[in-house]
Amino acid sequence: MILGVYALFLQKDVSTLPALLTQLVEAKRNFIEYAPQLWFLPCLFFVIVFFSIIQRFVKNKVFIMVAVTTSMALTIFIPQNPVSYSPSLPYGLDSALYYIFWFALGFCIKGSFITYFNHNGVAQKTITTLCGAFALLCFFGLHHHYANALTEVIGGKAYVLVWTLPTLILFVACIPLAKQLANINAVRYLGSNTLFLCGCEAIAKTSFVAFIGIAGHSLNIGDEYYTVVYISVLMFILYKVKSSIDLNKSKY
């Protein structure tokens, strides 16, 4: 569907279709120009397959984390360039070996993590405040100097592995915002339909740009604020489309 929309709205030459179909069949992360986000689906599939295999032989959560951390490290240090930057295998196979760490981490800590941050004590407020301050540094690009200094001390590839810690900090920084957004029914509805969002995101983006062009306007996303507004509009459109589909399905 996305390829059809891409070819029609952007008026792609028919001679380019074989190359575009090859991208579809190979499903390499960062190599599907008309649906860059769909790498996530086959990658998630193989993450679950690999994680199920690990669980079959390893029951202890600590050893599971050791196994997936080792998997992540191998994808960083063995290739010439870390897989997180330069994936090469189809269907996100190498990316799955890298991102399985995050899947396993969520599996191992989700219960205690959610319980802990459901409390609104001094410790939780302090942690989220500090993490929020770090997120603001990253948002305004003020962390680059320290990040570059850390890279020089640790080394390029090792820095990729160490960056898991700042990623976790940024995740925690999103918790207060997520709690507020969770009170909005439309957001909760979209949250329960993330596969629909992932599948239709490229169609929504391409179509939205095309309709703006028909009206004689152009889309200019200058910075992060523009991006948030743009994505919010797309999310609202997809919400209306998906809710309409579900309403019609319930009628029949």
Rank of each mutant, 00 (worst) to 15 (best):
I2Q: 08
L3S: 14
Y6M: 02
Y6G: 11
A7H: 01
A7Q: 12
Q11Y: 03
K12P: 03
T16M: 11
A19G: 00
A19I: 00
A19Y: 02
T22Q: 09
L24P: 06
E26Q: 14
Y34H: 06
A35V: 01
Q37E: 05
W39A: 01
F40C: 13
L44Q: 09
I48V: 09
F50L: 10
F50W: 15
F51G: 00
F51K: 05
V58A: 07
M65Y: 10
V66L: 00
V66Y: 02
A67P: 11
T69H: 07
T70A: 10
S71I: 01
A73L: 12
T75V: 11
P79A: 02
P79T: 02
Q80N: 07
N81K: 08
Y85C: 04
L89A: 12
P90N: 04
P90H: 03
G92K: 12
G92Q: 05
S95Y: 13
A96T: 01
Y99D: 10
I100D: 14
W102K: 06
W102N: 02
F103R: 14
A104H: 15
L105I: 15
G106D: 09
F107V: 05
C108I: 15
K110C: 10
S112F: 05
S112G: 04
Y116I: 00
Y116A: 05
Y116Q: 01
N118E: 04
G121K: 04
G121C: 05
G121E: 06
A123V: 11
L130K: 07
C131K: 02
L136M: 15
C138M: 07
C138D: 06
F140T: 14
G141R: 10
G141E: 13
G141A: 08
G141K: 08
Y146H: 01
Y146L: 09
A147W: 07
N148Y: 00
N148A: 07
N148Q: 03
L150H: 02
L150W: 08
T151L: 03
E152R: 02
E152M: 11
I154Q: 03
I154S: 05
G155Q: 00
A158G: 10
A158R: 11
V160C: 12
V162Y: 04
W163P: 14
W163F: 06
T167K: 05
L170E: 10
F171D: 14
A173F: 04
C174W: 07
I175W: 12
I175T: 02
P176R: 03
L177E: 03
A178V: 06
I184M: 00
A186D: 01
V187A: 01
V187P: 07
L190G: 07
T194H: 04
F196L: 09
L197F: 08
K205T: 06
T206R: 00
S207A: 13
F211G: 01
F211L: 14
I212V: 09
G213F: 09
I214E: 14
I214C: 10
G216N: 12
L219I: 06
I221T: 08
I221D: 13
G222Q: 04
E224I: 13
E224D: 14
V228Q: 10
V229M: 15
I231R: 04
I231A: 13
V233W: 08
L234N: 12
L234G: 14
M235H: 06
M235Q: 04
I237M: 12
Y239K: 14
K240C: 15
V241N: 03
V241H: 01
K242Y: 15
K242V: 09
I245T: 11
N248P: 08
